[in-house]
Design a protein around this nucleic acid. Sequence first.
RNA 1: GCGUCGAUGGUAGAGUGGUCAAUUACAACAGACUGUAAAUCUGUCGCCCUUCGGGCUACGUUGGUUCAAAUCCAACUCGGCGCA
Length: 450
Amino acid sequence: MKEFSFEITKKSAEAPLARVGIIHTPHGKIETPAFIPVGTKATIKSVLPEDFQKYVDSDAVLANTYHLYLEPGNKIVKKHGGFARMMNYNGPTFTDSGGFQVFSLGAAMGVGVSKIAKREDLANQNLEKNLENKNKSFRLKKIFKNNKFFSIDIFFFKKYRLKNKIKLNKKKEEKSLVKISEDGVEFRSIFDGGKHFFTPEKSMEIQHDLGADIFFAFDECTSPFANKHYQIEALERTHRWAKRSLEHHIKLGESEATGEMQALYAVVQGGIYEDLRKESAKVLGEMNISGKSFDGFGIGGSFTKEDMTKILKVTNENLPENKPRHFLGIGEIEDLFYGIENGIDTFDCVSPTRLARNGSLYTKDGRINIFNSKYKNDFSPVCDDESCYAHRYTKAYLAHLFRSKEMIAATIASLHNLHFIVHLVKDIRQSIIEDRFFEFKKSVLGRYKN
RNA sequence: GCGUCGAUGGUAGAGUGGUCAAUUACAACAGACUGUAAAUCUGUCGCCCUUCGGGCUACGUUGGUUCAAAUCCAACUCGGCGCA
């Protein structure tokens, strides 16, 4: 039985941090850099595992701890022999720690901030939403209906309404579903509102039950708009949680679900602050409990596009070179280039599959929205690449499937987007091997608009 | 032929004197989506002017009542149903 290991087979002659390697796991190897598709609830949405293996040619899958814990429950997954077995997937697997949900169900709740934030949006967006809602509910209330003497002057009424709409009907703020404490995080279930408490130890136990080859220490993903004081506080907590995660992982030993030893990655945080990222990389890189250290590192957090590259650089310069680095939740075209250039080995991202389900498709010239009316009469193939499953269908057909809400629309689109991204990363890998990374980057990004 | 009910924006279908250019849903047209609360969400959706705002034309047709009509009245046209 093969154990986890990582070997670097080539260092880029062009970009100092970029490298090519192989991650060995009990369930096969991952040739890096690699894009890891996300199957949150032990399914890549809309895609059969067999089709995924046949048409996407991906080396691994990542599932989510929080979601599988709630549904169907980690014990059920464990009885299947781990989530990979359960979903009939026989390649290498990852599970996320649940740390991202601390952010997405907490600070990010109802604010419109995601992994990649836009500074200017935060302020404006809420105001606009508020105004709309207030206006709407005013109309619904019909508060002048019973006033007989009102009937005097519509013009006046309109003026009145416009003038006052801001003060009417306070928008209900969406409440955070999480509470963070030193010991862990209290989550309210997204399904039934029930309370659940996650600690680093609990996360380790759940992930041992889920049985992925690679899993992550429990962390706190912070909002990019949190101030530095909070970022420091959260970072130190994440470090303490990482230590507890490692300790508990050692104590638990091999996964009872699979009978195999899993690889634990720590998650580097620190927001947009280079000094914090550097510190985090060093602390976690050196963390050691009776001779055992982390097998690799995830880089987490939510940040603006501008901050991403510098964060990656400083982080990867300070992490142990001989261990794999995973960029959590990132995966747009240009981000993949920046990530790999700055030392990332693996990525996971929901973007290809979510975009696909919403009718957005990757092409070499940028994303297209298959719902646009021009595609009703476009008889060119969905994908030019003959190795892509979508090659055999016309855009007009796919447009029809989406418009008529046929389920297979999502399937074809997902297979296409996954194929596109997975193969792009494979091509980037090849470009490093052949020492033409920058040339390749320029040719792809020069053409790709978005 | 008589009686009766009905005719509303691309469709379905609210509204039955003044918050009506007209609720809502669907369709249409755009946009968003980065460790998945996402097969989701947002915007536009009569015409014209540069947004706020303003102007014009509109609820089968024509005429009327009224300060005010999709809404009340009359006739007509078309349609459903019932009776001959």
